[in-house]
C-alpha cells in the first residue's frame, strides 16, 4: 500500500470527507481554505476561498453538488462543488464545530460552540439541492443543549433522529422533526469529550470516538452500546469501513503535549479493529502528529486521514486488506459454499 500524500494545507487538518461516490475528497484545515481532491490519484481539483477563520468542519451533499463548511469565523457557508463559488453564508454568534447533510441532502445541520452568553445549539436548515436556487435564511429547527455542549451531531437513517455527542461523554437522541429530546445515554466516561461521530453506511448505528481512549459502536434507535474498542491513546476520530467489517480509529497525544513526546510514543497511527471481534488487527503509521480525522471511502476502496501535521494521507487498500478473514469467518464461508 503506497499512500498518497496530499500537502495542500499549511496548518493542522480538522476534517476530511469523501463524496458519496468516493471519487472526491474534501479537506478542511485551520489555514482557512477547503481543498477538493480526486481520490483516485490525489490530484487537487480546486480550493474554496472565503472563510475568515480556522475551518472546523465540512460536508458534501449526497449528489456532490453542494458543499457546506463551518468555521471559527462564526459562519456556515455553502459552496458550489464544481466551481468553488460561494453560494450562501449564515452568520452565528459562535464558531461552528460540525456540519452535516441529511441522508437525502435536503437538510443541513450545524453545531454551534458554547461561549459566554451563548449556549451550544444544533441548527437545521432546509436546503434546495440546486446551485441556482435561493437558500432559506432562517433555520427550520433550533435545538439548545442546556446541560452539556454538543461537539458532534448527525442525522440517523431516514432523517428520523438527530444524534448529538456531547462534551460530557453522553449522546442524545432528538426528534429530527420537532427537536424534542427523546433519549440520552452516558456512553463514554464522565467528562470525556466525544470527539467524533460517524455513521455506518445505512445509518442505523454509529461509532463515537472519545478522549477516554475508547471508541463505541452505538445503535441509533435505542442508544445501546453494541461494541467497544479500547485503544491506548486519546481518540480524535473513528470510522466504520464498508465492504469489510473493520473500524479505523485515529488519535494520538493531544497537540499541546506532542513536543514533549517522541513520535513513537505519540502513537500517531491509524488503528484498525475488527468491528465484530473488537480486536486490534493492525496499524498504519505515517503521520508525525495526532490524527484529527479519519474518513473512509463509502465504496470501501480507500481511507484518508488528516493529521495535526498538516497532511492528508490517502491510502488505497491492497489485497491483504480485503483478503483478511478470521478463522471462524473462513470456516463460515466454507460452509456456505
Amino acid at each position: 500500500m503506497r499512500p498518497i500524500l496530499l500537502s495542500g494545507h499549511t496548518r493542522a487538518l480538522t476534517q476530511v470527507k469523501y463524496s458519496k461516490d468516493g471519487d472526491i475528497i474534501f479537506s478542511v484545515s485551520k489555514d482557512q481554505i477547503i481543498c477538493a481532491w480526486y481520490a483516485a490519484n490525489g490530484e487537487r481539483l480546486g480550493t474554496y476561498h472565503g472563510h475568515q477563520g480556522a475551518l472546523w468542519t465540512v460536508d458534501v451533499d449526497p449528489t456532490t453538488t453542494l458543499l457546506a463548511s463551518g468555521a471559527a469565523d462564526n459562519t456556515i457557508r455553502l459552496w458550489d462543488v464544481k466551481t468553488g463559488k460561494l453560494l450562501k453564508t449564515w452568520d452565528f454568534g459562535t464558531a461552528i464545530k460540525r456540519v452535516e447533510f441529511s441522508p437525502d441532502g435536503t437538510q443541513l445541520l450545524g453545531v454551534t460552540e458554547r461561549r459566554q452568553g451563548h449556549l451550544s445549539t444544533i441548527v437545521v436548515y432546509d436546503i434546495v439541492l440546486d446551485v441556482e436556487a435561493e437558500q432559506a435564511d432562517e433555520h427550520s429547527l433550533r435545538i439548545v443543549c442546556e446541560d452539556s455542549k454538543a461537539t458532534v451531531a448527525g442525522f440517523s437513517y431516514g432523517s428520523k433522529y438527530i444524534i448529538s455527542g456531547h462534551e460530557d461523554g453522553s449522546v442524545t437522541q432528538w426528534d429530527a422533526k420537532t427537536g424534542e429530546l427523546l433519549d440520552s445515554a452516558q456512553i463514554q466516561e464522565d467528562d470525556m469529550q466525544i470527539t467524533d461521530l460517524q455513521w455506518s453506511s445505512d445509518r442505523t448505528y454509529f461509532i463515537t470516538a472519545s478522549k477516554d481512549k475508547t471508541a463505541k459502536l452505538v445503535a441509533a434507535n435505542d442508544l445501546r452500546v453494541l461494541k467497544t474498542y479500547v485503544a491506548d491513546t486519546p481518540l480524535n476520530s473513528a470510522a466504520i469501513t464498508p465492504v469489510k467489517d473493520y473500524v479505523i480509529l485515529g488519535g494520538g497525544q493531544a497537540a499541546m503535549d506532542v513536543t514533549t513526546t517522541s513520535a513513537r510514543q505519540g502513537k500517531f497511527e491509524a488503528r484498525f479493529y475488527h468491528k465484530i471481534f473488537e480486536e486490534e488487527i493492525g496499524r498504519v503509521r505515517g503521520h508525525f502528529g495526532p490524527l484529527n480525522y479519519v474518513a473512509v471511502d463509502p465504496q470501501g476502496k480507500s481511507y484518508a486521514s488528516g493529521g495535526e501535521d498538516g497532511y492528508v494521507r490517502l491510502h488505497h487498500f491492497d489485497r491483504g486488506y480485503f483478503d483478511f478473514l478470521y478463522e471462524v469467518e473462513r470456516e463460515a464461508e466454507q460452509a456456505n459454499l
Binding site: 500537502s7 487537487r44 505515517g286
Partner: peptide, 20 residues
C-alpha cells in the same frame, strides 16, 4: 496531479492479522 500538492509516500506494509 501536481507535484507541489500531491506526492507518493513510502510504501507501507499493512497486513491485518488476528493476533496482531
Amino acid at each position: 496531479p501536481q507535484s507541489d500538492t500531491t506526492s507518493i509516500a513510502e510504501n507501507i506494509v499493512f497486513r491485518p492479522s488476528s493476533n496482531w
